[in-house]
Protein backbone atom coordinates (compact mmCIF):
# COMPACT_ATOMS: atom_id res chain seq x y z
CA UNK A 1 0.00 0.00 0.00
CA UNK A 2 2.85 2.38 0.79
CA UNK A 3 4.07 1.84 -2.77
CA UNK A 4 0.79 3.10 -4.09
CA UNK A 5 0.83 6.09 -1.75
CA UNK A 6 4.15 7.12 -3.13
CA UNK A 7 2.90 6.87 -6.67
CA UNK A 8 -0.11 9.10 -6.18
CA UNK A 9 1.79 11.69 -4.13
CA UNK A 10 2.16 15.04 -5.85
CA UNK A 11 5.20 15.50 -8.08
CA UNK A 12 6.68 18.75 -9.29
CA UNK A 13 3.39 20.56 -9.82
CA UNK A 14 0.43 18.97 -11.50
CA UNK A 15 0.35 15.71 -9.59
CA UNK A 16 0.95 12.15 -10.68
CA UNK A 17 -0.16 10.62 -13.96
CA UNK A 18 -3.44 8.69 -14.00
CA UNK A 19 -4.81 6.41 -16.71
CA UNK A 20 -8.52 6.84 -17.37
CA UNK A 21 -10.93 4.08 -18.32
CA UNK A 22 -14.46 4.91 -19.40
CA UNK A 23 -17.57 2.76 -19.73
CA UNK A 24 -19.98 4.19 -22.27
CA UNK A 25 -22.69 1.54 -22.43
CA UNK A 26 -24.29 -0.67 -19.89
CA UNK A 27 -22.60 -4.04 -19.95
CA UNK A 28 -19.71 -2.75 -22.07
CA UNK A 29 -16.14 -2.98 -20.84
CA UNK A 30 -14.27 0.01 -19.48
CA UNK A 31 -11.99 1.22 -22.27
CA UNK A 32 -8.85 3.29 -22.01
CA UNK A 33 -9.75 6.88 -22.87
CA UNK A 34 -6.48 8.66 -22.11
CA UNK A 35 -4.55 10.01 -19.17
CA UNK A 36 -4.30 13.10 -16.99
CA UNK A 37 -2.44 14.57 -14.03
CA UNK A 38 -4.00 14.91 -10.59
CA UNK A 39 -2.74 15.09 -7.02
CA UNK A 40 -5.10 12.41 -5.72
CA UNK A 41 -7.74 9.90 -6.78
CA UNK A 42 -10.65 12.19 -6.00
CA UNK A 43 -9.34 14.98 -8.19
CA UNK A 44 -8.34 12.50 -10.85
CA UNK A 45 -11.96 11.37 -10.96
CA UNK A 46 -13.28 14.93 -11.16
CA UNK A 47 -10.79 15.90 -13.86
CA UNK A 48 -11.59 12.72 -15.78
CA UNK A 49 -15.27 13.67 -15.66
CA UNK A 50 -14.44 17.12 -17.09
CA UNK A 51 -12.02 15.87 -19.73
CA UNK A 52 -13.32 12.49 -20.85
CA UNK A 53 -17.05 12.76 -20.17
CA UNK A 54 -17.84 16.23 -21.48
CA UNK A 55 -20.52 15.03 -23.84
CA UNK A 56 -22.37 11.85 -24.63
CA UNK A 57 -23.34 9.26 -22.09
CA UNK A 58 -20.74 7.91 -19.73
CA UNK A 59 -21.80 5.40 -17.12
CA UNK A 60 -18.66 4.87 -15.13
CA UNK A 61 -15.03 5.98 -14.92
CA UNK A 62 -12.01 4.21 -13.47
CA UNK A 63 -8.88 6.18 -12.60
CA UNK A 64 -5.70 4.17 -12.14
CA UNK A 65 -2.28 5.51 -11.09
CA UNK A 66 -0.12 5.06 -14.18
CA UNK A 67 2.72 3.63 -12.11
CA UNK A 68 0.41 0.86 -10.88
CA UNK A 69 0.20 -0.54 -14.40
CA UNK A 70 2.66 -3.19 -15.42
CA UNK A 71 2.73 -3.67 -19.17
CA UNK A 72 4.23 -6.41 -21.28
CA UNK A 73 7.08 -5.14 -23.40
CA UNK A 74 7.19 -5.21 -27.20
CA UNK A 75 10.22 -7.50 -27.13
CA UNK A 76 7.97 -10.10 -25.52
CA UNK A 77 5.90 -10.14 -28.67
CA UNK A 78 7.18 -13.46 -29.97
CA UNK A 79 7.74 -15.77 -27.02
CA UNK A 80 5.30 -14.20 -24.55
CA UNK A 81 2.25 -14.43 -26.78
CA UNK A 82 3.34 -17.54 -28.63
CA UNK A 83 1.04 -19.86 -26.67
CA UNK A 84 -1.91 -17.95 -28.11
CA UNK A 85 -0.78 -18.27 -31.69
CA UNK A 86 0.43 -21.84 -32.11
CA UNK A 87 -2.52 -23.75 -30.73
CA UNK A 88 -4.94 -24.01 -33.59
CA UNK A 89 -6.94 -26.57 -31.66
CA UNK A 90 -8.17 -23.74 -29.44
CA UNK A 91 -10.28 -22.44 -32.31
CA UNK A 92 -13.63 -23.95 -33.25
CA UNK A 93 -12.67 -24.02 -36.93
CA UNK A 94 -10.11 -26.70 -36.05
CA UNK A 95 -12.89 -29.25 -35.55
CA UNK A 96 -14.85 -30.96 -38.27
CA UNK A 97 -18.53 -31.57 -37.76
CA UNK A 98 -20.62 -34.02 -39.73
CA UNK A 99 -21.89 -32.60 -43.00
CA UNK A 100 -25.33 -31.07 -42.76
CA UNK A 101 -25.33 -30.91 -38.98
CA UNK A 102 -26.19 -27.57 -37.39
CA UNK A 103 -23.96 -26.95 -34.37
CA UNK A 104 -26.12 -24.17 -32.98
Amino acid sequence: MSEQKKSTAPDSGDGALWEIFVQEKQGAPHLHAGSLHAPDAEMALQNARDVYARRGRVLSIWVVPAVAITASSPEDDGPFFEPGNDKVYRHPQFYKVPRGVKVF
Partner: peptide, 17 residues
Protein backbone atom coordinates in the same frame (compact mmCIF):
# COMPACT_ATOMS: atom_id res chain seq x y z
CA UNK B 1 -5.01 25.93 -6.44
CA UNK B 2 -2.28 23.45 -7.36
CA UNK B 3 -0.62 23.94 -3.96
CA UNK B 4 -3.89 23.49 -2.08
CA UNK B 5 -4.77 20.34 -4.02
CA UNK B 6 -1.31 18.90 -3.39
CA UNK B 7 -1.45 19.76 0.33
CA UNK B 8 -4.92 18.21 0.63
CA UNK B 9 -3.76 15.05 -1.11
CA UNK B 10 -0.68 14.81 1.11
CA UNK B 11 -2.74 15.32 4.27
CA UNK B 12 -5.18 12.59 3.29
CA UNK B 13 -2.40 10.22 2.34
CA UNK B 14 -0.99 10.69 5.89
CA UNK B 15 -4.37 10.11 7.52
CA UNK B 16 -5.02 6.85 5.71
CA UNK B 17 -1.51 5.75 6.67
Amino acid sequence: VRDAAAAYAAKHADKSN
